[in-house]
Simulated scan of single mutants.
Amino acid sequence: MRILVVTGCPLARSAFQSLLTEREDVEALWIEECKNPEGYTARLGEADLALVADCTSLDAVLAAIRACKASGEVRVLVVTGDAGETVLRQYFQAGADGLLLKKSLESELTAALAALLHGAKYVSASLASEFAARYLTEPVAIAVKPSGEALTARQKEIIRLAALGHTSREIGDQLGISPKTVETHRTRLMAKLGLSSRAELVEHAMQHGLLPAPAG
C-alpha cells in the first residue's frame, strides 16, 4: 500500500516513520507538513491512504481531511488524542473514513489500515460503537484483525511460487532476492495469514486466485 502521512508534529513524524517504514506491505511512504497543503495534495493521486495526525489546530486538521477527500479516491484515517464527541463528530463530518486514538496507534494501526483498504470505516476499539454509528453510514470495523488480503505483488508471488513447490533459492533467483530473504518473507507471511503447513499455503493460494483450482 502507498501511504501519505500529513502531520505538523516532529514527534508524530518520527513515530510514523518508525512504525511504517519496516512494514512489508508499505510500498511507498511520504510524510508531509500539515501546514503545506501544496506538498501533500500533490501526493494524493499516488496514495492509497492518507493518515492525518491532529498535532496542529482543529481547523488545520479539518482542512487537511477535506483536502484529502476532495482529491478523489484516497481514504483518510485520522490519528487523534482527543476522544471528545464534539471534535470526533467534526472529523467524521469533514470526511474522515477512520479514527484511531494515539494511545492505540501501535496496537491497532494494522487493523485500521486493513479496514480502510477493504472499504470499511474504522474507529478505535475504546470508542463506543454506538457513537460511531451515529456519524458513519458505511460498515464500521471495531478492533478488526489484520487481513491477509492486503498483500503486495511480491508477497503474492512468493506465496504462489512456494505453493507450487519452488525452493527458496529458486524463488530468490526469479525475484532477484536472496534465499534467506525469501525464507524471512515466507515465515512472516504464513504467520500473518495464520497458515501452518504447505498444504494450507496451497489452499490459501487457490482460494485467492494465485493458483488455478484443480480441474473437475
Rank of each mutant, 00 (worst) to 15 (best):
S197G: 08
A191L: 12
W30R: 09
E85F: 12
D25K: 08
G165V: 01
K121M: 03
S104L: 14
L127N: 13
K192Q: 13
V61M: 11
S168G: 04
T7R: 03
A111S: 10
G119V: 08
L101E: 04
A143C: 08
I31P: 03
A153W: 07
R2Q: 15
G45Y: 03
R160C: 03
E200M: 04
T80G: 01
L58Y: 04
V5L: 05
L201F: 09
Q17K: 13
V79W: 00
T21G: 02
V123E: 01
S178T: 15
G216A: 11
L116E: 13
Q93E: 15
L117S: 15
E38V: 08
L195Q: 06
H166S: 07
A114Y: 03
P212Y: 05
S147A: 15
L195I: 12
S178C: 04
R169Y: 03
A199T: 04
K102I: 03
R23Q: 15
L195N: 08
P214T: 03
V79N: 01
R75W: 09
G216Q: 06
T137Q: 04
E85H: 13
A114K: 03
A53L: 02
E24Q: 12
E183K: 12
A205S: 00
I142E: 11
L151E: 08
R23I: 11
D25E: 13
D82F: 02
V123F: 10
A132N: 04
R23C: 11
G8Q: 03
T184Q: 06
R198M: 09
P214D: 01
E130W: 09
H166M: 10
A191T: 14
G72L: 00
A42H: 05
E183M: 08
H118M: 09
Y40E: 02
A128F: 10
P37F: 09
L113R: 06
A94K: 03
Y135L: 12
L4F: 02
L51I: 15
V182T: 10
K156I: 01
I31S: 10
Q155A: 15
V5T: 05
C68K: 04
Y122I: 13
Q174V: 13
V78Y: 09
R154P: 07
F92H: 14
V144R: 07
Q17H: 14
S14F: 00
Y135M: 05
L101G: 08
F131V: 10
L62S: 06
S168E: 13
S126P: 00
A53W: 12
F92K: 14
S126T: 14
A114E: 01
E85M: 12
H118D: 10
T80H: 00
A83Y: 08
G8S: 02
L117C: 15
A50N: 03
K145V: 11
S168M: 10
V123L: 09
K103V: 15
A64S: 05
P10S: 06
L195A: 09
A125N: 09
D54P: 04
L58F: 06
T187V: 12
A125C: 07
S14G: 02
Y135V: 15
T7K: 01
V144I: 04
L210P: 00
L19S: 11
L101W: 05
V6Y: 01
C9T: 11
A141Q: 06
A125L: 12
Q155H: 11
L113W: 05
A28F: 11
E33Y: 06
L109K: 11
G148E: 07
A94S: 14
Y40R: 01
L58Q: 10
S197A: 06
S197M: 08
A15P: 01
A63C: 02
Q93V: 14
V52P: 02
E46A: 15
G172T: 05
D48M: 10
